[in-house]
């Protein structure tokens, strides 16, 4: 284990602790939803980090196809895996939040549907990688799929949005000042930073393990 990786791990742990303190200690109880709103501090950072992860997959895939650098392929592989984990957390916490708030675990609402499709696409990506034995071929095919998948996400998003929606508009991504109490925003930001650190830690570790795997089996 490299020292940089270890430092990243400790930072992520620290950030998560701070995030918990912010979510439960500092942020006030929300007026209409009650304490169940505190799930948001998991739910929103998870999906933002997942988008980041899949963006990294796209960039790394393009770089791999361009110069065939094995490092880019490992980064794409690791990032996709971590992104799927975070997407899973987003979907699960969303369902748990939806039951008391909307009155249903699941509904074919736009955001829920498009995120779950994204989840399935990247699960397929990992499946493809797992099913091809030749390392170099797996890298090439996965890179193509990584590009198609990333370009498909906006199409999925809008098509499903037109299809039906119930989810409230994203609060943070809206132009202008967010209609949120500053304390909520601060708590959200702390958690987002913590999740980013965790993403960095997981990805760095996974990339190193993939490299070692190749060295051992080469």
């Amino acid at each position: 284990m490299t020292s940089r990786e270890r430092a990243l791990g400790w930072l992520a742990g620290l950030g998560l602790t701070a995030g918990l303190v912010m979510a439960f200690g500092v942020a006030p109880r929300e007026a209409t939803q009650g304490n169940v709103q505190r799930i948001m501090y998991l739910h929103v950072p998870a999906i933002l980090v997942a988008y980041l992860a899949f963006g990294v997959v796209l960039v790394a895939s393009v770089i791999y196809l361009w110069g065939r650098a094995a490092g880019a392929d490992r980064l794409a592989h690791a990032s996709a895996e971590v992104g799927v984990v975070f997407t899973g957390i987003n979907i699960a916490t969303g369902a748990i939040w939806g039951k008391p708030t909307w009155g249903t675990w699941w509904t074919w609402d736009a955001r829920l549907t498009s995120v779950s499709i994204m989840f399935v696409i990247y699960l397929g990506y990992l499946l493809l990688r797992a099913m091809i034995e030749d390392r170099e071929r797996a890298a090439r095919f996965a890179a193509v799929l990584g590009i198609v998948a990333a370009l498909d996400i906006p199409l999925v998003h809008f098509s499903v949005y037109w299809w039906r929606t119930l989810h409230q508009p994203p609060t943070l991504l809206r132009p202008g000042s967010p209609p949120m109490d500053p304390t909520f925003v601060l708590a959200l930001m702390v958690n987002l930073a913590a999740f980013m650190l965790l993403y960095g830690y997981f990805t760095a570790k996974r990339v190193r393990l993939l490299r070692q795997e190749e060295e051992v089996f080469a």
């Binding site: 696409i121 397929g124 098509s159």
Partner: peptide, 16 residues
């Protein structure tokens, strides 16, 4: 693998 990869990617086309 073929349908598993293709179908989710095709959701926008299918819906439209």
């Amino acid at each position: 693998l073929f349908p598993v990869l293709l179908l989710p990617v095709q959701v926008p086309v299918l819906l439209g």
